[in-house]
């Protein structure tokens, strides 16, 4: 492995999204954004919903959208295990907008008998998708 590079793997239940080297990876953990480079102390943390940035060889940042999951950091290797992760250009903005409306309707309407937490999570997912998908 090249000097000062860290291997990054992003794995979801249905596919392996990314498996390559990177200079630095910035991700949104549940306790704030963290950036990880080669030689990091072993760390395990949970991830929030958000954008993950991969910096490599001074090129433009590669972005991925990650919805929850957790990450295992070892000095040479980062493994991200997420329920769902996708590239911004794969996002179906129209579908995300429909999901947003659905979630908003649910939250604004009669709150009895619905899973509020689930609806809120769905709304957050939709908002991130719309934000990133439009870019």
């Amino acid at each position: 492995m090249a000097e000062n590079k860290i291997r990054l793997r992003i794995v979801t239940p249905v596919r392996e999204l990314y498996n390559d080297e990177a200079d630095m990876v910035i991700m949104r953990s549940t306790s704030g954004d963290i950036g990880i480079m080669h030689g990091h102390q072993p760390l395990t943390t949970t991830l929030g919903y958000g954008v993950l940035k991969i910096m490599k060889d001074g090129e433009d940042d590669v972005k991925a959208v990650v919805f929850g999951g957790y990450v295992d950091v070892q000095p040479e290797c980062i493994t991200i295990l997420s329920d769902a992760a996708e590239w911004p250009d794969e996002i179906d903005v129209k579908r995300a907008e429909e999901a947003k409306e659905r979630a908003e309707r649910r939250l604004n309407g009669n709150r009895e008998g619905i899973d509020i937490l689930r609806a809120e999570l769905a709304l957050r997912r939709a908002l991130i998708r719309i934000d990133e998908g439009k870019r």
């Binding site: 549940t30 963290i34 072993p42 760390l43 943390t45 949970t46 957790y70 070892q74």
Partner: peptide, 24 residues
Amino acid sequence: SVDSNSLMMFEPSEEEVLEYVIPK
């Protein structure tokens, strides 16, 4: 494959990480 002597960090805490990871 990890060396058992290395110090492992957990964010936010060990319990919370386990609480999350095991159901997963």
